[in-house]
């Protein structure tokens, strides 16, 4: 068992707690022990757009908390991962900036030394893929999945250092391990448009429509995402876009760890599927019948 500090992130904590639930269920079964620390918002890109210096200070506080416990950070959100990785890199590289930021942290009895790393859980799971393979009991044979890697798991690549942002393949490998079928589709690398949904709903809706249409027409039965913002955009907001733009098709969304849970033998309820807004009765039946076949084989 390796220990990590779990960085859940605000979106999952407040808006998608079922993803936190599935992470707490599944990660320990993959030999990952998780510790809870008093992390705040990472902080996000909106916060950075007001004042980069405070953005660095708050990120440094989060990193310093993990350092104090001697733990690396395992994150559930690509946005949080990007903030923490970028801030870590900036502060490790710039001695004078680090000294100034540490003056701020001194006020609350913390210090940033640069001794921890932050990674998205997909990066960590990909490094221990043999453990993942051993735990699979109910492979997702025949389930047709459209991958949406999103932006910040991959970019900027010199900070994220995980996969090729133009032709990502790592999430694909991780899904093939679970037995799922990958459906390639033309709009695979299009950003989900989440941050425009609040202020420019029309633009965001058209992005959603193009993504869903592209994956649906390619034959996908569901999306799989590594990101809570993409999850919200392609789940709850998909229904809004569908109403506004009157398209016919719809695709449910899985967060990657939900699929891991299904492949490890949990049922749809146990992985929080019914907390999603977009449903597909056909796909639900298909997943249930996979499980029945398993029982017959035994």
């Amino acid at each position: 068992m390796k220990q990590y500090a779990l960085f859940t992130g605000c979106t999952i904590k407040a808006a998608l707690p079922h993803i936190e639930m599935v992470a707490r269920k599944v990660l320990p079964l993959l030999d990952i022990e998780i510790e809870e620390l008093a992390f705040t918002c990472c902080p996000n890109a909106d916060f950075r757009s007001t004042d980069e210096y405070s953005w660095l200070v708050v990120a440094a506080r989060n990193l310093a908390l993990a350092e104090k416990e001697g733990l690396e950070i395992l994150s559930l959100c690509p946005g949080c991962t990007q903030t923490l990785k970028e801030a870590n890199m900036i502060l490790k590289d710039d001695n004078s900036l680090r000294a100034r930021i540490n003056k701020r942290l001194e006020r609350i009895g913390l210090i940033f030394k640069g001794t921890t790393e932050a990674n998205h859980h997909l990066v960590i799971l990909h490094q221990q893929i043999d453990i993942l393979i051993q735990r699979i009991t109910t492979p997702l044979y025949g389930i047709k999945l459209a991958i949406h890697s999103g932006c910040h798991l991959l970019m900027p690549s010199w900070i994220m250092q995980f996969d090729n942002p133009e032709r990502p393949t790592k999430l694909e490998e991780l899904i093939k391990m679970l037995g799922g079928t990958i459906i390639d589709y033309p709009e695979k690398t299009l950003c989900c448009g989440f941050t425009l949904f609040g202020s420019h709903k029309g633009t965001a809706s058209r992005i959603i429509r193009d993504k869903v249409e592209s994956a649906y027409l390619a034959g996908a039965e569901a999306f799989v995402v590594p990101c809570p913002s993409c999850f919200q955009q392609l789940d709850r907001n998909q229904l809004v876009a569908k109403r506004e733009l009157k398209f016919e098709y719809q695709l449910p969304v899985f967060y990657y760890l939900q699929l891991v849970g299904l492949a490890m033998g949990f049922d749809l309820d146990e992985v929080g599927y019914y907390h999603g807004r977009v449903r597909s009765p056909e796909l639900e039946e298909k997943i249930k019948s996979l499980r029945r076949k398993e029982v017959v084989n035994i």
Partner: peptide
Amino acid sequence: APKERIDARELIIATGFSYPI
């Protein structure tokens, strides 16, 4: 800066979270 950006910043500073709890 637009008011919603300032409000979003204030929410994080006041509560630690970017979503209202």
